[in-house]
Every structure is written in structure tokens, then in C-alpha cells.
Design a binder for these strands. Structure first.
Lengths: 139, 139
DNA sequence: TATTGTTATACTCTATAACTATA
DNA sequence: TATAGTTATAGAGTATAACAATA
């Protein structure tokens, strides 16, 4: 019976939950919700898109992100401009201020999140991070 | 600006979501919910405990797992016996049938879940798994 | 008084499906 | 008619607090 190990999800999920617990106070400090941060990140990495495309990109329903977009727009972090070529579409873009906020949040998160890997030796931590990144970009 | 990488959660969360999508139909096939499977796994790995201890062990509220325990008990997968020493407490245990079901589910899950690591070379896959396991046990 | 398990309540998410305006 | 965005509705999930039994 040697080959016993926990399921992948059983090992990964606690990590994610710990990470969320780390991120929430940071996000609150910047007055941005988790969905809001997710939107800012997506828009910052790939500039313009329709709301529907954005929604599927971050794994949400198109109706689910509307409140988030309203908040971000009102805070001046994103812009929604009607597409002249197809007036049904709202072209999305992150504002300079949105970009600044996104980077500040990311800096705070990334300087705190690595603590979840603390139990690994430094070399292993680096390896884990590299493999995870590889896994993430090749999806 | 070299040091740019996605946040840990941004890389891990999609993995978890993909894993859940893989697990749900398997669990449905065994007529066990995700919470139910989580409870079976916890009880199988560390035999007896109070409901409150079990709840915190799997990251839930004590009131949240009661419906799950009812279902599992009715299906004959767990037992709730009053503690003679403290009649407020219900001692929890997994039944032989519960153990069988849990193992069957785990076998199905583990034979399917590794596909999320498919984009890694075999050696890297093994390394990732080892580090993740190390991370999980040393928490 | 404190604790275990339970129930009840309200609150938050989420999914679904209508609705509008454009095409 | 089909699609983008929006709104409305209902359903599921969750947290909180009250409750009964026991310590």
C-alpha cells in the first residue's frame, strides 16, 4: 500500500486559502475587491477586450463582473468607452491610476505571499516557484 | 522591471478549479459530496474526533458540516456514537464501508488528476509533486 | 458559566434568464 | 435573428447567533 498521498486538490486548496487570507487585508487597504484586483490584473496584462471576453478570461460570468466594473470605473481605475465600430461593445482599458494601484497591490502581495513556502528550503522554494510558473504559462 | 510574475494565488487558483472540475463527476458517481469526501478523508486519516474538531480540521464551521454528517451517517459511511465520558460529545468514526468508498474515490481521482500537470516534463512533474507534498505535510 | 451539537435566521454569492440597444 | 451589456429573480452556500443538553 506504499503509494499513498493526498489528492492534489487536498494539498493545493489549503495553500490557496492561506493566500487569500494574506491578500484580503492588503486588498482592503487599497480599497479594491478580489474580483476588482483580478480585473485590473487581466486588463493590465492584455489591454483591451469586451466585457464578455474579460469575464471568461477570469473565470466569471459576464453578469457577475458588472458591479465590479462599475466600482473600478467610479474609482477611476478603468475606463469603459463605447466601441465606435460596434456600439453594443464597451472597450475596456485600465487607466494610469489603475495601473499604479495594481502594481502597488501586487508589490504588497508578492512581498507577503512567499511566507506560505517558508517550510521549504530556499532552493526548493525557487524550484517550486519555477515549476508553478511554467505550469501556469503553458495552459 | 525584470522581476514580474503572477501572484501565487493567480497561478494556483486555476489549477484548483480545474481539479474540482475533474473531481465533481467522480464524486457524483460515488454519490458523495465534496464536503462528504473531505470528511471521509479526514476521518480515515485520523480516526476519532469531535464534530467541532473535525470541522476546524477541514476548514469549516461546526454548523456547516452537520448536514454532511447526516448524509454520510444515513449512507452508512460514518458513525456518530455518544461519548460515555462526556455525553455532549459525539465520537466520530468512519465505517468499513466508508473506508472502502473513500479509497475507491481516491483511486479514481488520483488516476485522473495528474492530467493537470501534463504540460510539465515527467521529471519536473515528479519534482513538483514531491515539493507540494513536502509543503503539505510540514504545515 | 462554559461547551457540544443543533437549528434558525439573515446575508452573500452565484447562476439563469429576461430585457435593451444595437447589429 | 443574433449579440453585448445590463438588470432581476431565484437558488445555493455561508456566517451568525440563538437554543437545548450536558459539563
Amino acid at each position: 500500500m506504499a503509494s499513498e498521498r493526498p489528492d492534489l486538490a487536498a494539498m493545493l486548496y489549503p495553500l490557496v486559502r492561506e493566500l487569500i487570507a494574506i491578500e484580503l487585508p492588503i486588498l482592503a487597504g487599497h480599497e479594491v475587491s478580489m474580483w476588482g484586483y483580478s480585473v485590473l490584473a487581466a486588463l493590465d496584462d492584455t489591454p483591451v477586450r469586451t466585457q464578455a471576453a474579460l469575464a471568461t478570461a477570469i473565470g466569471a460570468d459576464k453578469s457577475r463582473i458588472i458591479g465590479t466594473l462599475d466600482e473600478l470605473q467610479q474609482a477611476g481605475l478603468i475606463e469603459r468607452t463605447p466601441d465606435p465600430d460596434d456600439r453594443r461593445v464597451r472597450l475596456l482599458s485600465i487607466t494610469p491610476r489603475g495601473r499604479t494601484v495594481r502594481r502597488a497591490i501586487r508589490k504588497d502581495i508578492q512581498s507577503a505571499e512567499l511566507q506560505v513556502l517558508d517550510s521549504l528550503p530556499a532552493a526548493d522554494r525557487k524550484t517550486f516557484l519555477r515549476l508553478l510558473q511554467q505550469l501556469h504559462t503553458s495552459r
